[in-house]
Simulated scan of single mutants.
Amino acid sequence: ASAPARTADPEEDDDARTARAWTEETELLLALRRERAAAPAEAAPPTHVSASLLVGLAEDPEQVRSGLRRPMPRRPAPQARAGTRFHEWVEEHFGSPAMLDLGEALTDPEEGAEPELGRLQEAFRASPWYQRQPWAVEFPLETPVAGFTVRGRIDAVFRNDPAAGGAEWELVDWKTGRVPTGARLEHRAVQLAVYRLGFARLMGVPLEDVGAAFHYVAENRTVRPARIADEGELARLLGLL
Rank of each mutant, 00 (worst) to 15 (best):
P97W: 02
F94D: 14
R227I: 03
L240S: 06
E11I: 03
R132G: 06
W89F: 02
S2A: 14
R236D: 15
A82T: 08
F124K: 06
P61W: 06
A229Y: 14
E11F: 05
A98H: 02
A58S: 15
F86M: 13
A41D: 08
S2N: 12
H187L: 05
V64C: 02
R151I: 09
A43I: 09
A51I: 08
I154V: 10
E25P: 04
F86H: 12
R227S: 13
V217A: 00
V223A: 08
L54S: 03
P61T: 01
E114C: 07
V145H: 01
T176H: 03
L171K: 00
Q79S: 12
A235Y: 04
L30D: 12
D14H: 03
D101Y: 10
Q131V: 15
H93I: 05
E111M: 10
L197N: 07
E12V: 03
V55T: 08
A123M: 05
R153A: 02
T181L: 13
A213E: 14
A80H: 10
A43S: 14
L106K: 11
D15A: 10
A39R: 15
T84F: 15
L234Y: 00
D230L: 02
A98C: 04
E122G: 03
F214Y: 14
P140A: 12
D161W: 03
E208K: 13
A21L: 14
A218Y: 07
V150F: 01
R33P: 03
E92N: 07
E110A: 11
V145R: 03
M99V: 09
V157T: 01
E219H: 10
A1H: 06
W169P: 04
D209V: 00
A19S: 13
V194E: 06
V157Q: 04
E92I: 11
P45S: 01
L192P: 03
E91L: 13
H93W: 13
D173R: 10
W129R: 05
R132K: 12
M99S: 11
H215G: 07
R119E: 13
A123E: 07
L53W: 08
W89Y: 06
A31W: 00
R74N: 04
R151L: 09
Y195S: 11
D60P: 08
V205S: 01
G83E: 03
